[in-house]
Each structure stands twice: as C-alpha cells, then as structure tokens.
Design a protein around this nucleic acid. Sequence first.
DNA 1: AAAGATTGATCTATCAATCTTA
DNA 2: TAAGATTGATAGATCAATCTTT
Lengths: 145, 145
Amino acid sequence: VSDTHELAEALRDFLLRSHRLMDRRMRAEGVSLARFKLLSFILREQPVRSTDVATAFGYSPRTVTEALDGLEREGLIARQPDPVDRRAKRISITPVGETALRASEPLRDRLRDDVFGTLSGEERAAMAAALAKLNHRLAALEAPE
Amino acid sequence: VSDTHELAEALRDFLLRSHRLMDRRMRAEGVSLARFKLLSFILREQPVRSTDVATAFGYSPRTVTEALDGLEREGLIARQPDPVDRRAKRISITPVGETALRASEPLRDRLRDDVFGTLSGEERAAMAAALAKLNHRLAALEAPE
DNA sequence: AAAGATTGATCTATCAATCTTA
DNA sequence: TAAGATTGATAGATCAATCTTT
C-alpha cells in the first residue's frame, strides 16, 4: 500500500508533540492530561472501581493502580472499601481533586480548539470518519480468533 | 469549536491501541517499534551522535541515552569515541542489530498496511493533508515568541 | 475457577541538573 | 559560554505473577 509510511509517521509525530505540549502546559497550572482524563471519568462515574477504569480506558490493571496511587498520594482521589464486595475498592474524587480538575478544564479546551481549529468542519468530519474505520480495523486485528 | 472532543479522543485511542498492537507483535519476533525506528535511523545515518538522534526524533536527551543504553546492552549498537571531538561518541549498528532490524521489517510493513489499507487512497491523502496542517499549527504553538 | 486489586520488572518518555570538552 | 553526553527523579504504559475474595 502506497504512502502509508509517511502517514503513520505524521500521525505518531502529531501524537507525541501534541501530548507533550498539552501535558507541559496543563501540568504548569494543575494536572497533567492523563490525570485530567482520569479525574473527569471518576467525577462522572463515582464511586467507581479500579477495574472499571481499566475497562473504560483500555488500560492494563497495572497502569491504573499506578495512576491511582499517584492521585491518592496527592489527595485528589480517595479509595474506600466496597461495602458489598470485600475484594473491591470504591474510588471517589475529593474536593481538592475536583478543584484541580475545574482549574485545568478551560486550558485543555482552549489548547485543543487552538490545534483542531485549523481544520475546517469538513476536514474534521473526514478525519473522524477515517479514524472510525481505522479503529474498527484495529479491533479486528486485536481479537483475531 | 464543535466536535473536537470526540476527534481528539478517537485519535488518541487509535494511536495508543495501534502502538500497543505493533509493539506486542514486533517484540515477539525481534525488536519493539521504538527500537525499530532508532535502529533504522542509525543504520541509515551512521556513524551518528546522540544529539543527532534527539534532533531527528524530537526526543529529549534523556530519552535517547536511555534508549541507546538498552540497545547497547543487547549488542544491537556500539558506541565509539569520536576521533575529532572528545565530547562526542559515534554510534553505529552492529551485525546483530542489523539482523534484528531486517527480521522485523516485513512484520512492521505488513501490520501497517493491514491497518491503513482499510482507507482508500483519497482518504489517506485527506488524512495526510489534515495532519500536515495540525503539525504545522502545533509547531506555531510550541514556539510562541 | 474467575474477578478485583496489587506488586515486580521493564520500556518509553519528560524535566532538571551535572560533568567534560570546545 | 555553549555543546555533547550522562545521571537522578518521575510519569505513564506494558506483561506477568501474586494474593484475597467470590
């Protein structure tokens, strides 16, 4: 297939650089992008279990425990024993965590719009459609039974 | 700006998952995707310095030293003192490294074509054009003087 | 046996600091 | 002073193994 090489490179380049930019700026005024996403999810779905986070984000269990440890260490979330299942813990966001989340939200939105705003509505739609195809194909390759 | 949220999520989701897939499969028969890229560059440009690698990939110096340490530990590359600049080292690929690189190449190409092959030529071209715009915009934001 | 959570070892990446040489 | 390379501390992600409870 022609020209997939350059396309893949450009895609990876964009991810790496946009992630670096957003992370750097967001961290300076509150929470990193990765933490922002976790906190958003926890706020929306709380009380939530570790395994729910892993499923929702497609992360490995290890990644989630590690991330939650960090958030808990800084008092942004709390873990409490699940009253009905003694294997599980219920994760909730703290007032400190909610404040940090709210503080970072406008910056995140502004940066994202700054970047994606260079595309026209048609271009964004075309890109979304292409990504949907790609993600669908990827799902097929991941589970090749 | 409308619908940038879903677009950004889809993009991030695709990159995370495609990277995981390629890395898993490639590692099983040779080298990871990240190492593959480094080895390709070193093979093409050798003898090369650490700072050249950092510049070419947009990586931090720390990332490069760490990566080269790993490659050297497994005998895929060698570092030698630069004869004319005693601060520098010249990095070259070893026969073992070249073999590992060649072994992984077909797999990498096949996987990439498997994924991107679901898009038509027009779709790939549109996506490449959009990414070029995005990367250009990102560069402007990175250096905001 | 399977599910929920954690831990150990490792890779890829960052920032910030340091050391040597130019 | 600046450039080339390294090191220390840390974040974010993987796989594989373990421990407790269902």
